[in-house]
């Protein structure tokens, strides 16, 4: 079970206080009537569903009842950060090009130790780099 930091309450709370509400940063098309069915279907149903870094919305149902975003690893379940609506994530998934470059330069240290810190509101620049590179 997760301990999740609510960026509005500024406290760690148990997972059961929250509701998960899906992928974050999905923008509703400005003029739905004018777009093709493909674009509308894409907006409604199609999701990134990555194995790894995922930006997602949570709702503090039994707390402040506000939505916020979290960056969570869907494989390790580590929550890297939580941030308010409208803000951008500090931790993002490495791009495919970066992964290839990383593999080429450092094959033996493939399994870099991940920062073992507990959930934080913000990650420090070092951690962020450690995850992104």
């Amino acid at each position: 079970m997760h301990h999740i930091y609510c960026p509005y309450c500024e406290e760690m709370r148990e997972e059961e206080e929250y509701s998960y509400t899906g992928e974050a940063h999905i923008e509703r098309p400005k003029d739905p009537a004018s777009i093709a069915d493909e674009a509308w279907g894409d907006y409604l149903f199609f999701r990134a569903n990555p194995r790894g870094i995922h930006h997602e919305m949570w709702y503090h149902t039994a707390g402040c009842r506000r939505y916020f975003n979290a960056t969570r690893d869907t494989h390790s379940y580590q929550i890297h950060e939580t941030y308010k609506m409208g803000e951008l994530p500090a931790v993002t998934a490495p791009t495919k090009a970066a992964l290839v470059a990383d593999k080429a330069k450092a094959a033996p240290v493939k399994d870099k130790a991940k920062p073992k810190t507990k959930t934080k509101a913000k990650v420090t620049p070092e951690e962020q780099q450690g995850d992104a590179s």
Partner: peptide, 15 residues
């Protein structure tokens, strides 16, 4: 979803 991402597709699926 991971397989679809290999060819740049997205699916209406969440794991």
């Amino acid at each position: 979803g991971v397989m679809a991402a290999m060819v740049g597709l997205r699916l209406p699926i969440e794991s």
